[in-house]
Amino acid sequence: MRDRQQWEQGPNGLSLLPWLLMGLGALSHLLGGEAPNPWIGGFGLLTFNTLYIAVVFRACHPLSRETPTTWGLLGALGALTFTLAIGYGREWLLLFPLLGLAVGAVVRHGRLLPWISPPLVVAVGVVTFWRDGWDSIGIVYGTFMSVMVTAAILALDETVRQLRATREELATAAVEKERLRFSRDLHDLLGHTLSVIVVKSEAVRRLAPRDLDAALAQVADIESVGRQALTEVREAVTGYREGSLATELDRARDALSSAGIEPVVRRSGPLLEPRTEALLGWVVRESATNAVRHSGASRCVIALDGTADRVRLTVTDDGRGTFGDDGRGQSAEATPGSGLRGLRERLAAAGGTLDSGPAPRGGFRVTAELPVEAPGPHEGEPTT
């Protein structure tokens, strides 16, 4: 399977094997009885083909391309090529372009190519001119082009495959980031909405025996909250939800009142950008949900103030002094996937901070600070 993946991802040594047909001239020279010492020439040609195949296959494997073994085989191939060309000349000079292919496959990076290619071409030119005169100028040119073109094509192919792999990694990271954003949004949206529905349902149960009209009003609120939740979930799925801080404050005030908690909202400071309001809206939503579900508080104060550069939101209740519950009566603040963890990630991506913990006079306090103009989706995380 791994070998198949490597075949699909890029070229291997098989793509350079057809060029061995250039050695048929040397073979014909041997079979024609024109070459001296034909047994030595035949063994040399067989050894050349073996070394060439070994070098090109190793050169096309990223782990073995620049190992000492590959360099040793390439050196032996070069020495054998020059020996055969000097000893036999004529058709044997066509082995030089094959040597160029092997050199280009191994030395495909710019740091070594300028140091190896010119000396090789000069040496080839000296041997070919000595053995065959000016008629062999095509051999010299062919050797030069073999080195340069092979190096360029294989280096470009390697670069393209690396870019493709990087693109796939970035796409995977983007999918994971979007999945985290989506799960966090659903946690924040549904956690708050379901808490409100539970609180109002309890209010209906209490009011129904003694005040039917009030109970029906709570039922109407439940219907309204449910419809709003459907709308928000749809907007979150499409990735275009941008909450309003004023709306979140109104919802928090209503949810706290329904749970028997006195809401106190104090707002001052500069006008905020929609992105900043949306982030602070998440803090209000999560903090109010905690106060309703876990705090046991009788009063919750939501204070918003700030300067021209930064804005601060503080949510303080007078309850038990914990954020959430892990089922054993302990704070769930550090539980993976919890509300506070998601809030910290959101605010950190926008250049803000989130502090939380027991308030000095009892209860629990959440303090969020943000720049007045929080970074947009291209600077922080995707718009939710």
Rank of each mutant, 00 (worst) to 15 (best):
E262I: 07
E232G: 14
A229Y: 06
L245K: 04
R241E: 01
R251T: 08
S244F: 10
Y240F: 04
G243H: 10
G239Q: 01
V237F: 04
A246D: 15
G260T: 02
D250Y: 09
R253C: 12
L249V: 08
R241Y: 04
R251W: 07
A236D: 01
R267E: 12
G243A: 09
Q228C: 15
L245M: 07
R234M: 08
E262C: 12
V233G: 01
R253Q: 13
G226I: 14
E242W: 02
R253P: 05
E242K: 05
A255L: 08
Q228Y: 07
E242V: 12
R234S: 08
A229G: 14
P263C: 03
R253I: 02
A229T: 09
G243V: 03
A236G: 05
L249T: 02
A229C: 13
R234I: 10
P263R: 02
G243I: 01
T231L: 13
Q228F: 09
P263E: 02
E242G: 03
T231P: 07
T238A: 06
G243C: 06
R253V: 10
Q228H: 13
G243T: 05
E242M: 10
I261K: 00
R267A: 12
L256G: 04
E242R: 09
S244P: 09
T247W: 11
A246C: 11
A259F: 01
A246T: 14
L249E: 05
A236P: 00
S258D: 13
G260L: 03
V265T: 12
L230D: 12
I261L: 09
G239M: 00
E262L: 12
L256E: 03
R251Q: 14
V237D: 06
A259R: 04
G243M: 08
D254A: 15
A259Y: 01
Y240K: 05
Y240I: 04
D254P: 11
R227A: 15
T247K: 13
S268M: 11
Q228T: 14
L256W: 06
R234T: 09
R267T: 14
V265Y: 05
D250L: 12
S244C: 10
A252P: 00
A229N: 07
A259I: 07
E232C: 13
S258P: 00
S257E: 14
G243W: 08
S268A: 15
A252T: 01
R227S: 15
I261F: 04
I261W: 02
L249W: 07
G243Y: 06
L230V: 15
T238N: 03
G260M: 06
Y240S: 03
V225H: 04
L256N: 05
G260P: 02
R267K: 10
R241D: 01
D250M: 09
A255E: 03
R241I: 01
S244Y: 08
S257I: 06
R266P: 12
R266G: 03
S268E: 15
T247I: 12
A236Y: 01
R227I: 13
L230A: 12
T231C: 11
E242C: 07
E248N: 10
D254S: 15
S257W: 05
G243D: 09
S268V: 04
R267D: 11
S257M: 09
T247Y: 12
L230E: 09
S244R: 11
T231I: 09
P263Y: 02
R267H: 10
G260E: 07
A255V: 03
L245P: 02
A246H: 11
P263N: 03
A229I: 04
D254Q: 13
Q228P: 06
G260C: 05
